[in-house]
Design a protein around this nucleic acid. Sequence first.
DNA 1: CGGACCATGTAAGCGGTTACATGATTCT
DNA 2: AGAATCATGTAACCGCTTACATGGTCCG
Lengths: 211, 211
Amino acid sequence: MSLRHALLALLTVEPMTGYDLSKAFQASVSHVWHAPDSQIYPELRRMEADGLLVGTEVPWGPRGKKREYSVTPKGLDAFRAWMNEPLSYTRERDPAHLKAAYLEWAEPDAARAQMHAHIDAYTARRDDWRDKVREIDTGTSTMLEQRLAHAPASEHASIRAYKRYTYEGLIARAEHEIEWAERGLALIDELNADAPTAAHRTRADAAPPAT
Amino acid sequence: MSLRHALLALLTVEPMTGYDLSKAFQASVSHVWHAPDSQIYPELRRMEADGLLVGTEVPWGPRGKKREYSVTPKGLDAFRAWMNEPLSYTRERDPAHLKAAYLEWAEPDAARAQMHAHIDAYTARRDDWRDKVREIDTGTSTMLEQRLAHAPASEHASIRAYKRYTYEGLIARAEHEIEWAERGLALIDELNADAPTAAHRTRADAAPPAT
DNA sequence: CGGACCATGTAAGCGGTTACATGATTCT
DNA sequence: AGAATCATGTAACCGCTTACATGGTCCG
């Protein structure tokens, strides 16, 4: 149900067409909750069917048309209800840590490659999130500035603060993951100190030196 | 595909019945990758159909029977292939951070409850994972000891080290999440310093004091 | 003989992934 | 005229969730 509420969050700012919403989504929430267009458009239809949104056809050019959605009172209620009830936490399901637990099965170089992939993935995320806090601080986030423009000045501080808080948490998490993977690289080196190039370990294994 | 490889990881130790495997799963991998029985049993059947496992019927009591699975060479190859190719990372999808980004919509007390839920969820995980490293260190993890018993002594150090490394990473992550939520609590207090009990904020909003 | 536990699932449904489909508009 | 981009999806598939179903065995 998170996609639904992410969409509601955006539409609380102002009514938008599916396309605009999709762009706004990519530029804001998607940094925290990814969703492709193929999920967004049908979900908007479902939300309309459920009475959370109303959609109106807007002409666009001579023959084109687009659909503009706005949040209904029922939609607002649903969003507020979601915000006011605590999340239920699902159990751990972490591919990287699952793999790490059995890393003795990997070739040392493959294990290193895994750690590098982890580092790359999280540095990209970290940089992305750092950009987001920069946008918050410099007022260059279109969505955020729109939201602030539609909100009473008394709430501006909170709105900014919660967004900054969110991204800072994610940045710290990414940094932790990078450090973890770097410790992993060190551990792999340590455990393979005797075998500097382990590319042929299985071969050597199959044909041990006859004494 | 992670469940499949988690099951292979367990069956590399020794052949097991579905039931034993399910118990072993709950006691070990499930701390990193949760899966219910309703997913495990059918997956074993599918893996057998795909030639990764062979299952043999074993009588059990006068009329009962159970199915014992062992890994085929093809299964071993598949597991090793998975271990040797780096994971592909999926994009962020984090309900807690999604919600945090729009916390200004929550009642302050609901926001606090959310943070407490986060703290509770991660302290439970952290304690669980701490137990796991204790088990590793004290040799009280049945699955791990079995695995060590079936592995050459030269690999014991790596096997232990990677498991410890995995759980330590998860513990550090849990601790980070707890700290993040605690900073959240402080932030909520800070932003609501003027309104100590905010339970009726919307009401007050609807009926502002007439001067 | 009853309760704990051994043993193995089915079925409906949901959210998400991937790939593809189609056509209009605006700009250069 | 062609490219970029506006606009909105469909379809097949997959892994996971939740709830339920069924029967055997072992022990006190």
